[in-house]
Write a protein that binds this DNA or RNA. Structure first.
Lengths: 294, 294
DNA sequence: TATGAGCCTTAGTTTTTCTACATCAAAATA
DNA sequence: TATTTTGATGTAGAAAAACTAAGGCTCATA
């Protein structure tokens, strides 16, 4: 019996959050990414927490970490707590400023699909202000302050998800280039443009064409689809494009499809919403305007 | 549509915790107390949160704060989240170090009732280590890292509470003083000792005696019951004592009861446990040993 | 009118948290 | 086998957050 003079303190909330993220994702690096900090910060948080609890939470291997049985057992409770907290934070934002919404989207989607539609939204409901953040990977909606995300997904639709469009690829190019393309074989003489994140697109499309296997895949890679698109528009080569992202330019005639065949990819453009946002008045308007014509 | 380059951040967790406490308790000062910080810290947290959400959460009056309807609406969700978090933290401690338990108790209870029994516990289960923190008011078990509390309570027993003893008061003094006390009136010539936190005790007891109303209540006040008790033991006066706290000294003969009459107060000494602790193996042992003889 | 309770503000300090690197070990690759 | 890659760690310094202390304000109550 030690009559301690000081009120004992609980662990730091940030350490608990770091633990939950690391345990759920099974990786300190992934947790650091979700929390927008460096992996070193996560290491420190978890070390602090382990010292506080006087126990080990992770088994460190040189290549990644593994949960101890204790951490495994405790994880669901922490996840539930932070989920509830995240929901309440979303509710706070949605009820305090219902006319302001935050969207996270793939850069290409943000620029080529979303941007035109936001003009439409402004016409219909000028009181709604939308802020868009371009991200390469979908954020964890239960934890980060976004109301909706727009990404491609090959998984079955989840509870708060809505299919926006399918994903279908085909080559596009400037009309001047299209003039000299009649057979798939002609592509061998052209620069094949593609996006770095979708480096398999040409391969997929060519494999679906008879004789396409022989075309060399080498070409110019751009880190952003929108830059590759710009390049194609100026006659820089033939781009393997995603239908939803080039519909506008095709309609305007800036780009044309040299070949009729397209390939459907097994994935969709998916809009995902937070449960809190779905309860707000704004949700219906946004959904109606943005997802009107599939 | 502003294409923001930075990933937006959620509010700080500490700010959310401060909000929850302030909203639940309806007072910044009380929240500061629960969180063991100064009221200024709470003010700042809440101001930060209000700025983040771009909304007002409290209506400030010169005398206390009132929740806005929005805050009122959001409170339950936040409370639930932090309750769950608290439970998980307790579970972490209980499963990581099941042999270490933390108790918060009233100073007088800690010293006079609990301390003797801890020796007994050590005999029965030496592997259990108990740390005791003396507090004047019961801590919020759902938020602070204690496994159990021991305080007097006049309220009906709650879900995780167990009655330990009743509370019954009567005068005690050294045998030398008792020798010159025969009637209640004789108390008029003695120094009446009492604890500052229980300043009404003499009043209550005297009112229950015939003729007691006339005795002057003035006497020596001590901030700690145990100091008043020490004073009484050394012949410094007559103390109005609580049965559970002086049983030992009475049995040993260090103190005696000059009058037979006692008054039952409408309250009990109550042990309260965390739900997480009740699930641990240690709970049964502790309960059996400490609460054996009512 | 004086007092006290309760919150606010500001300035300055302490504590916490984060980053930037360098390092290390196992696994994957060549 | 040598090399590269991946993911975690340790440390120092810097940045950010959180806290305290002290003075001030306002309203209710005595």
């Amino acid at each position: 019996m030690s009559l301690s003079p000081v009120r004992p303190k609980g662990p730091h909330l940030n350490a608990l959050r770091a633990f939950e993220a690391a345990a759920r994702l099974g990786s300190f690096t992934a947790a650091a990414d979700e929390l927008s900090v460096t992996p070193g910060a996560v290491t420190q948080h978890i070390k602090t927490l382990e010292a506080w609890a006087e126990t080990q939470l992770f088994i460190r291997n040189a290549r990644g970490v593994k949960l101890t049985p204790l951490a495994e057992e405790l994880l669901p409770g922490f996840t539930q707590a932070f989920d509830q907290l995240g929901f309440s934070v979303h509710a706070l934002r949605n009820k305090a400023t219902p006319q302001k919404i935050k969207v996270a989207a793939l850069p290409a989607i943000a620029q080529l699909w979303l941007a035109p539609r936001l003009g439409l939204l402004r016409e219909v409901a000028p009181e709604i202000s939308v802020s868009v953040v371009a991200l390469d990977t979908p954020p964890n909606l239960a934890r980060e302050p976004f109301d909706m995300t727009l990404f491609f997904s090959g998984k079955p639709l989840g509870k708060n998800e809505v299919k926006v469009t399918g994903d279908c690829i085909f080559p596009v190019c400037a009309p001047s280039i299209a003039a000299r393309l009649t057979r798939v074989d002609d592509l061998g003489a052209e620069t094949l443009l593609h996006d770095g994140a979708w480096h398999e697109d040409w391969d997929i499309w060519l494999r679906a064409q008879s004789g396409g296997e022989k075309i060399p895949r080498a070409g110019t890679v751009h880190s952003l689809f929108s830059i590759a698109l710009e390049e194609a528009r100026h006659g820089g080569g033939v781009l393997i494009a995603h239908e939803t992202l080039v519909a506008d330019l095709l309609q305007r005639g800036d780009l044309v499809r040299p070949f009729a065949t397209s390939v459907d990819l097994p994935r969709n453009m998916v809009a995902r919403f937070t449960p809190a946002f779905r309860q707000s008045e704004t949700y219906e308007i946004v959904k109606r305007v943005l997802l009107s014509e599939g």
